[in-house]
Every structure is written in C-alpha cells, then in structure tokens.
C-alpha cells in the first residue's frame, strides 16, 4: 500500500466548471441573495455601532441606524469610567482566552485521539461518560463548583477559569475532534505502524496535521465562548483588577435602573473587534485544511 499526499492542483475556492449542456443562472443573482441575507445578519452589529455613538438617552428612542445626534464621547468616557482603564480588561480577557485555547487544543486532541483511534478497556464507558458530562444543566453545578474551588483556595484567581480547559473538561471539543479523526482513513494508522510509529508519533506526525480544520474550529469556538463567558468569571473573580471584558461591559448597566447605555455599547463594540478579527484570521485555516488533505 502506498500513501502520498499532494496539494490539490486547483484551489478549492475556484469556481467549478458548470456541467455542460446546462444553463447557468446569472452569478449576480446569487450575490444579491447572499447580500440580502447578509444585511439581516449584519443588522445587530450595525445597530450596536450606531448605538455606540448615540447619547445614552436616545439609544432606544432614536430608532434609525443613522444617529440624529452623534456622541463620540461614549468611547472616551466608556474607556475610563470603570475602576480600571478598559485595556486592563482587554488584556485580562486575552490572557484567559489564549491560555484556554492552548489548553483546549492540547488536552482535547489527546483525549479525542484515544477515543477515535485507539482500542482500550473502558473506551465505550469513558466515551459515554464524556458525553454525559455535557448533559447536566450547569446551574445546578454552580454551587458545588464554587464550594470546590473555594476549598482549593482558587477564588479570585484565574485557575477556576483556566485549569478545566487544560483538563479536557469540555466534551464538545473532544466529540468534535473525535468525529473528524474518525473520518480519516484507517490506512493512515496502519501505514504509520508499519513504518514503526507508535501511537504518540502517529498522533503527532500523522493525525494532528490532518486535523487542522478541526483545530481551527476548536480555536475559534473556544475564543468566542471564553471571550463572551460571563457567569464563571462573575462568580470566581472579586477583584475588579482581574475582571474580564464581559464583566466590565455589564458594569455599565443596571437592568432595573439607570444605565450608561452609550458607553456600554461603545465598549461592547470595542470588545467585539478581537473576536471578529480572530474569526476572520481563523477561518483561513478552514480553507488550508483541504489543501493539505488531497489524499490519493
């Protein structure tokens, strides 16, 4: 048996040849449709941008997307209105997100490889347990977890937010990678074994490189979910110096009283920028995956 890996000659994004004898619909129609849907998708973002330059009092009453009165001061005021300047919260969130991504990629890929490609006693049981951990509503775990982390002495540190990511506690990512790894041909492992690779080298040299799209997906989702995570940081962090972006943004509002809406939406928009940036950067790896898996 022989296995070679070559780059696919045609870039995957290149338009495919239409089958002959069939009439092609005009291409602009598709763009009109895609753009139309896109506007609905974009609306909340546009609304947020618009709200971020409106005076707090007219955020909800001035319904047009183009503000009647502009108040760019929301950004400057919002940046400095809280206990710490806003860049502190951005850095805190970046630290947590970066470490969480590294932790998730490492620990979940290890576990996923075991479940997807190795045979060992208890595999099915452990896999079922892993799925089971995704099925219990988090609200009833809040108090026991809080007590547990309090006992360990981790309150007001980042450990309760980070350590679980290094210990593959999120079944979602494991299951995701398992499905990607299982769809790779078994011959890969066999061939690697014949070449004298043990499971670790096979994992590192053969499977890992082929799972780049799955890793990119994991990284993107981890970034977004950790970046937006509100309740866990709320629970475990008490020192405002340690606050993450969502905690900070929420401090502009009181749902039962007065709120600094303009400042809140300005900082919401600031905090969205890294996520959007990361998504745009990360989705490139979704493309690169195929270029390296032209398996023949």
């Amino acid at each position: 048996m022989s296995l070679t890996l070559t780059r696919v000659s045609t870039p995957p994004d290149a338009p495919q040849q239409a089958p002959s004898g069939r009439k092609r619909r005009p291409r602009y129609l598709r763009h009109v449709l895609l753009t139309g849907v896109g506007v609905i998708m974009m609306y909340p973002l546009l609304w947020m941008v618009s709200a971020s330059v409106k005076p707090s009092n007219s955020v909800f009453t001035d319904e047009g997307l183009w503000p009647a009165v502009f108040d760019f001061g929301n950004y400057a005021r919002g940046w400095t209105a809280l206990a710490e300047p806003f860049e502190i919260y951005l850095v805190n969130s970046l630290v947590i997100v970066t470490l969480s991504i590294i932790g998730n990629l490492l620990s979940c890929s290890l576990a996923a490889y075991a479940f997807a490609r190795l045979r060992f006693t208890g595999r099915r049981l452990f896999f079922a347990m892993m799925l089971g951990t995704m099925m219990l509503p988090g609200h009833v775990l809040v108090v026991p977890q809080y007590v547990m982390f309090d006992k360990i002495g981790w309150l007001n540190t980042y450990y309760p937010l980070l350590v679980p990511h290094f210990l593959a506690t999120n079944g979602f990512y494991i299951f995701l990678m398992v499905q990607f790894m299982r769809s790779l041909p078994q011959e890969l492992d066999d061939a690697a074994r014949i070449d004298g690779c043990g499971p670790f080298r096979t994992f590192w040299k053969v499977i890992m490189p082929l799972c780049v799209p799955a890793f990119a997906t994991t990284a993107i989702f981890t970034f977004i979910s950790v970046w937006n995570e509100f309740f866990s940081p709320l629970l475990y962090l008490t020192d405002p110096q340690l606050y993450t972006v969502p905690l900070a943004v929420r401090q502009f509002m009181d749902s039962e009283g007065q709120s600094m809406w303009g400042e809140m939406f300005a900082m919401s928009f600031v905090s969205l920028a890294p996520v959007i940036g990361f998504f745009i950067a990360g989705q490139k790896y979704l493309v690169r995956g195929i270029a390296t898996t032209g398996l023949r």
Binding site: S107, A111, A114, F120, F126, M129, M130, P164, F166, L167
Partner: peptide, 29 residues
C-alpha cells in the same frame, strides 16, 4: 488493529481523567 492498546489509551486520556475529578465532585453533589 484489534490488539488492545490499554496503556496508550490511558496515557492519552490522562488530562481527561484529571478533569474528570473536577467534574465528578459537582456531579455527585
């Protein structure tokens, strides 16, 4: 392929086993 690879499987699952402790305590509670 049929041969079991118990030790390898467990080594790969080590982080997950560690995490399991963090999950089992609140679950049981």
């Amino acid at each position: 392929r049929r041969k079991r690879q118990d030790w390898a499987g467990y080594v790969f699952l080590l982080p997950w086993f560690g995490g399991l402790i963090f999950m089992i305590v609140p679950f049981v509670a």
